[in-house]
């Protein structure tokens, strides 16, 4: 068992009468890719926002690197090495790609020239090197996702929270980005990802948690998860697993 970098302990989040996250617990082990999957509205992004400091949990605790970080504001978490991307990309529209990434690079580099140089390096890593001087507003969806990734990497995080970086990309773009995420992990960055694209989860995630209606209902390797009847039912409806198993021989 590797070290645990991030530990979510019984976190709940209530919005009025809605319990969006219900005593969810999971851990992210150092240098590994952990995925959080679940149907739409399961509370994945809410849980992410709590971990990244954008929302306070109603109850529960978040422990990062042995320290309780519950309720710490996002900018202080960033300084401790937690970076996040946004599901709905949030580029600094009025700036160029280079300037966008440099904002992240400035965290550890006060000097403008050094931040710009570091930003160019990160851009190369995610495949944006040719677009440095382009306004962020002119990027394609895939470009914006890469920019989101580049900015987060530029703060040199230890923990990277990826909120659906592959959503909205076509299969060939996904094939391009998957190695980038592998390369990030190989640099020693621990990754927690929310993902809908199962192809990517299967090829990337070393450990998967399934969140349904705010609760973690299953965990395990990607192979374990796709065979888990509870997970299948959560996605396809009650009884679906049984019907699939029954019809498996006939329908293929």
């Amino acid at each position: 068992m590797a070290d645990t970098l991030l530990r979510i302990e019984n976190v709940s989040k209530r919005f009025g009468g809605l319990l969006a996250v219900d005593r969810a617990s999971f851990v992210a082990e150092t240098h590994r890719i952990t995925a959080l999957i679940g149907p739409n509205g399961a509370g994945k992004t809410t849980l992410f926002s709590i971990v990244a400091g954008f929302l306070p949990p109603t109850e529960g605790r978040i422990v990062y690197d042995g320290m309780d970080i519950t309720g710490m504001p996002p900018h202080r978490l960033a300084r401790r090495g937690i970076a996040r991307t946004f599901q709905i990309v949030q580029p600094f529209i009025g700036l160029t790609v280079h300037e966008n990434i440099a904002v992240g690079a400035h965290l550890n580099r006060p000097a403008r020239a050094e931040a710009l140089a570091a930003a160019a390096d990160v851009a190369r890593m995610v495949g944006l090197a040719d677009m440095l001087d382009r306004p962020a507003a002119n990027l394609t969806v895939s470009g914006r996702k890469r920019l989101e990734l580049a900015r987060a990497l530029a703060i040199e995080p230890r923990l990277l929270l990826l909120d659906e970086v592959l959503a909205g990309l076509n299969p060939s773009e996904i094939r391009d980005v998957v190695p980038v995420i592998h390369a990030i992990r190989d640099r020693g960055i621990t990754i927690v990802m929310i993902e809908h694209v199962m192809q990517a989860v299967m090829s990337l995630a070393e450990h998967v948690y399934v969140l349904v209606e705010g609760r973690i209902i299953a965990e395990g390797s990607a192979q374990d998860i796709v065979g888990n009847p509870r997970v299948v039912e959560a996605y396809l409806g009650h009884g679906a697993a049984g019907r699939l198993a029954a019809g498996g021989g006939a329908g293929g």
């Binding site: 990244a52 954008f54 504001p73 996002p74 900018h75 202080r76 960033a78 300084r79 970076a83 996040r84 946004f86 949030q90 580029p91 600094f92 529209i93 009025g94 700036l95 904002v103 992240g104 965290l107 900015r151 987060a152 530029a154 703060i155």
Partner: peptide, 13 residues
């Protein structure tokens, strides 16, 4: 100016 949340996520107070 461009996006306060995105800035905060990058360590900007």
């Amino acid at each position: 100016r461009e996006n306060e949340d995105a800035a905060a996520a990058l360590g900007v107070d």
